[in-house]
Design a protein around this nucleic acid. Structure first.
Lengths: 123, 123
DNA sequence: CAGAATCCATATAGATACTG
DNA sequence: CAGTATCTATATGGATTCTG
């Protein structure tokens, strides 16, 4: 694979990190302003502390969200989307749009494929 | 999470299927026309038969590539990108562009984060 | 409150061997 | 040639418990 192939691969790897199971929804949950840890956890359905913590750490490390500790007792921690994070949100929006526009075609392709291949119809 | 959140989630799930480790590069390898199985395998570096087969099956099932068996001895199998696949390729291109344009910011954010957090600098 | 640490179930990738 | 089948190593996610 040549240069462009390698770049595609790097891009995929980076977005793979940023598009894990919860990141998209975290970014969406924070669209109107900062939230505290448990507020985010409440906004997402079914996320565990561990997964959410990992997700937020990764987003923080990549500069997508900012973590702010508010000294209090007990401590409060706020997360806010950065400008870079908003830019990523725009990209997510174009992905969402593509999915919405092509979902029907993809579903019918899957149905046709499953009809041709009677066995093994995993998701 | 409300409607939009659910749609984001569905979008992420779909693209997660279509953006696995090799799909992007398969699509890129087929950009100039159909190729046979082993030709694709040769174009990608380090892919195993199993992984490539799984990848191609998934792309075929979603209507991204078309599989064509050419009766011969031994049989030949060609894979070609569909129009839907080309549309997905455009989306991949916009992802690649975003990555390229923001890679520097992300890398410096990572470096700053790792400087603040001396331990545990996993990728 | 906001995590850290631990344990466990499952999913996935890779290597290898075999086949129509 | 173009796969399938099998086994194993590893990564990942969830549940649970504990703490400053």
């Amino acid at each position: 694979m040549d240069e462009m192939g390698a770049c595609c691969s790097a891009s995929r790897e980076l977005l793979g990190q940023l598009m894990d199971k919860w990141s998209v929804m975290v970014l969406y949950a924070l669209r109107d302003g900062p939230l505290r840890f448990n507020a985010i956890k409440g906004a997402l359905n079914g996320v565990t502390q561990k997964s959410l913590t990992q997700c937020l750490r990764r987003l923080e490390r990549h500069g997508i969200v900012e973590r702010r500790v508010i000294p209090a007792s007990p401590v409060a921690v706020e997360y806010e989307v950065t400008p870079l994070g908003r830019s990523l949100g725009q990209l997510f929006l174009s992905m969402y749009t593509w999915t919405r526009d092509n979902m029907a075609d993809i579903e019918s392709a899957k149905a046709a494929y499953d009809a041709r291949h009677p066995l093994a119809e995993a998701a």
